[in-house]
């Protein structure tokens, strides 16, 4: 009986996910959660700045996370480890209590840019806004790569 209990606990410990309890927070304005751990994999969802996820697995710079009933992968460069609540000064208001207001979203932010713009109307922020609006969707990138016989390679 004791052996059975011991075996049960050993099995339970070994079955626990390696990343149990680890969280990540999205630190990009938006990022795709992809079906596989590569940029050419289809997006199953779009995560926003400040969204938090439990890490199910970590591999090759990607985190496996759950989105509803599905699972997908977020690239580490769009995240920070830990649960960080972003402030109202950023792009997402803190959803929880005022105590959760934040550590990110302060410093050089939209409010500072607003003052800088007002002080320097000659700066061409309108052109920067237009530049940011130019986006290339996944399908166009894949088509462009295929047409140019571009195949990704492993680092050397």
């Amino acid at each position: 009986m004791r052996l059975a209990i011991l075996a049960f606990f050993i099995a339970a410990i070994s079955a626990a996910p390696a990343h149990a309890g680890q969280k990540i927070t999205i630190m990009s304005k938006t990022t795709a959660i992809r079906a596989d751990k590569q940029f050419f994999a289809p997006a199953i969802a779009v995560a926003n700045y400040g969204d938090q996820f439990d890490v199910l697995e970590e591999k090759g710079g990607w985190y496996k996370v759950a989105v509803g009933k599905k699972t997908g992968w977020a690239h580490s460069s769009a995240t920070v480890k830990g649960a960080v609540v972003v402030s109202a000064a950023g792009f997402k208001k803190a959803a929880a209590s005022s105590e959760d207001v934040a550590l990110a979203g302060k410093g050089f932010n939209a409010q500072v840019e607003g003052k800088y713009k007002k002080d320097h109307p000659e700066m061409n922020f309108a052109a920067v806004d237009r530049m940011e609006k130019i986006t290339v969707d996944d399908a166009s990138i894949s088509r462009f790569a295929a047409e140019g016989a571009l195949q990704t390679r492993e680092a050397r």
Binding site: M27, G90, G107, F108, A110, E113, M123, F125
Partner: peptide, 15 residues
């Protein structure tokens, strides 16, 4: 600097 701060710095440099 956080990625968000880097972004606002980058926008102003670009402007």
């Amino acid at each position: 600097l956080t990625p968000e701060e880097e972004y606002f710095i980058g926008r102003a440099v670009a402007a």
